[in-house]
């Protein structure tokens, strides 16, 4: 930091470089700098992509769900073509993947997983939580979904069929949950506030 940096730091603690980067961070910095030096990527592209990543969160998915609950025509379009319906709401896809929305019913509950790696609708829900990427979730979700759901506190009656949807590099999923009873007079914004990330992954349900 230069010596002519005079403004006061009283409003926040200084960020110190007291943590030594690990081997993998050194590798990340090195590869990025080499690619920039070779002109293969622009120096500002990583920062711009971080801004894109930071602009995506489950709030976007919640907007799609709430709109689908209040607008039956939109619901149809969302189930028919997730990418186009999201675009209608101003939500662009940045990773060129198909986006399929799975509708829960009184008889069927959907949940999503990626057994191979960590495929997830990032443009709509942001980056996935660690547990979604864990070997425990990935290996068990397809074999014993009810036991997995129970660990999230979700117990479904036996008569409800559970469908586990395995994502791929090209095909991403999100769950359209059942609208809770008693929300008939809620505004769209109030409905959005009910919808959480875990509900759209399908490991939780909204209580009626």
């Amino acid at each position: 930091m230069s010596n002519d940096h005079t403004h006061t730091h009283s409003d926040h603690a200084p960020i110190l470089h007291d943590e030594v980067p690990c081997y993998y961070e050194i590798l990340e910095i090195s590869i990025r700098e080499l690619l920039v030096e070779k002109g293969l990527i622009g120096p500002e592209e990583i920062r711009e992509q971080i801004e894109v990543l930071d602009s995506r969160s489950p709030a976007l998915g919640a907007k799609l769900v709430a709109r689908a609950w209040v607008d039956p025509e939109f619901r149809k379009r969302l189930l028919d073509n997730g990418v186009d319906a999201a675009l209608e709401m101003g939500i662009t896809s940045y990773d060129d993947t198909d986006f399929t929305v799975l509708e829960n019913t009184d008889k069927v509950h959907h949940m999503i997983v990626c057994t191979l790696c960590s495929c997830y609708p990032r443009p709509i829900l942001g980056l996935p939580p660690d547990w979604y990427k864990s070997k425990e979730y990935r290996s068990r979700a397809v074999r014993e979904p009810r036991a997995v759901l129970a660990e999230f506190g979700t117990i479904l009656p036996d008569e409800i069929k559970i469908v586990v949807n395995d994502s791929t590099a090209n095909q991403r999923y999100m769950v359209l949950p059942l609208r809770p009873k008693g929300t008939e007079h809620f505004t769209e914004e109030q409905l959005e506030a009910l919808v959480t990330r875990d509900v759209m992954i399908g490991v939780k349900v909204l209580h009626n």
């Binding site: 980067p21 690990c22 993998y24 961070e25 990340e28 910095i29 590869i31 990025r32 990583i46 920062r47 992509q49 971080i50 990543l53 997983v113 057994t115 191979l116 980056l127 939580p129 660690d130 547990w131 864990s134 070997k135 425990e136 979730y137 990935r138 290996s139 068990r140 979700a141 397809v142 074999r143 997995v148 660990e151 999230f152 395995d166």
Partner: peptide, 26 residues
């Protein structure tokens, strides 16, 4: 998928480290 893993899922939340987010963006 389905590989005989029986361990409980560690349901924790954490923000990514800055280098992890840079790695993702890269």
């Amino acid at each position: 998928g389905g590989a005989g893993c029986h361990e409980k899922i560690s349901i924790t939340e954490r923000p990514l480290y800055p280098w992890e987010k840079r790695c993702h963006a890269l």
